[in-house]
Design a protein around this nucleic acid. Structure first.
Lengths: 210, 210
DNA sequence: GTCTATAGATTGATAGAC
DNA sequence: GTCTATCAATCTATAGAC
């Protein structure tokens, strides 16, 4: 017997279905049917489908972003206290570790990670705007820290390398069944720590390339 | 006066609108209205909306894939003829150069590039399958060449590094107005050759990281 | 807060005249 | 090949009883 409230169940089910099939392919009827609640409850609790997806982002992304911002600011402060610049590895780990460890942090968090991996390329302008508005300040800070970290690179180069890194990271937030067909002998869902090491090794080398 | 045939115009306009707003947010009515043709002409010429998007992929992706496959096989053959393994840079350039130069190769090609950048994360299973089916053999060959190129890495490591690279490359196929908000002083649409150099420098370093 | 019922709009697809 | 007209299904959102 599921004792959670209607509002909770809507958030949980919608998060999973939006991740699985995307925003537009998931109707409110599918969500309310799978949640076992009435169709009209979406309007009552959230107001609209768009407000529902915004509430989903709000619930998970706000604490995740606060953790990443805090880590980034700590990296900056620690380096300053030691009278040096942060390293690219410190900056990247501050962003990547909370992101990839988020997957196992709560039931349903894996679906949300898939959702934000797709949000970068979301076709719906309103939905993409919700996401960009919430991650914009974080990206801006990461960009600033990386420009300090890599003084040999132009701002343009840092921007594009950060963009490459974002694309690489987003490939780790996808549910394994959504990846392209893969060769045998490959671990489709590595542990977060292994994935972090693979990513950081790859990205630090790319970021620091001459 | 546009003298191209109805079928051509449907392909051109649908490619642009699918790139701009995604498959599900673009109705056949929007497409036929902008193309200045009758709604029923989609059924007549293609049969369905899904067959239309498949024809779009077929038209552009088939020649692009043949070029990339040919370049990859040439890299392999040239190295074998010289009695050595291909380098990671050769393998990556064989994939990346045709991809990014494709943008300016024909009117509308830029929209198609945006479309395949989004196809990796396409929520609609049928549409994503069309794309994966067409690029599957190419990814498989690229994976094989990279495993030969990087004998120190496990197949798992090569797979994930290739996955990271695909994610990074996909950030270069996007139309600039779809990128997240960017800092001032950044070139949103670099020339293909500059973008290739930035990408290859970044990815070769990442691929060869110890 | 939850429900039924339905409004109001839009969609992909097609039948059939020309 | 092109057109009009329309079907049947789907969608989000809401009014109003309980």
């Amino acid at each position: 017997m599921d004792k959670s409230t209607t509002k909770q169940r809507l958030l949980d089910v919608a998060e999973k279905l939006f991740a699985d099939s995307g925003y537009h392919c998931t109707s409110l009827r599918k969500i309310t049917a799978e949640a076992g609640v009435n169709l009209a409850s979406v309007s009552y609790h959230f107001g609209s489908k768009e407000a529902l997806v915004e509430a989903i982002f709000e619930r998970r992304l706000r604490p995740l972003n606060e953790e990443r911002l805090g880590r980034l600011e700590a990296v900056r402060a620690d380096a300053a206290a030691a009278g040096r610049k942060p390293t690219a590895e410190e900056a990247l780990r501050a962003f990547i570790e909370p992101t990839l460890r988020f997957r196992d942090s709560a039931p349903g968090a894996r679906y949300f990670l898939h959702l934000i991996g797709r949000a970068l390329t979301e076709p719906d302008d309103a939905v993409r705007s919700i996401f960009f508005r919430m991650v914009g300040p974080l990206f801006a800070l990461l960009f600033e820290v990386l420009t300090e970290t890599l003084p040999n690179l132009s701002r343009n180069q840092v921007f594009w390398r950060l963009n490459f890194a974002i694309g690489a990271i987003s490939r780790c937030t996808f549910l394994p069944e959504k990846l392209p067909v893969v060769p045998p002998g490959v671990e489709l869902e590595p542990s977060p720590d292994l994935q972090i090491d693979m990513l950081v090794g790859f990205l630090v080398a790319g970021m620091e390339a001459s």
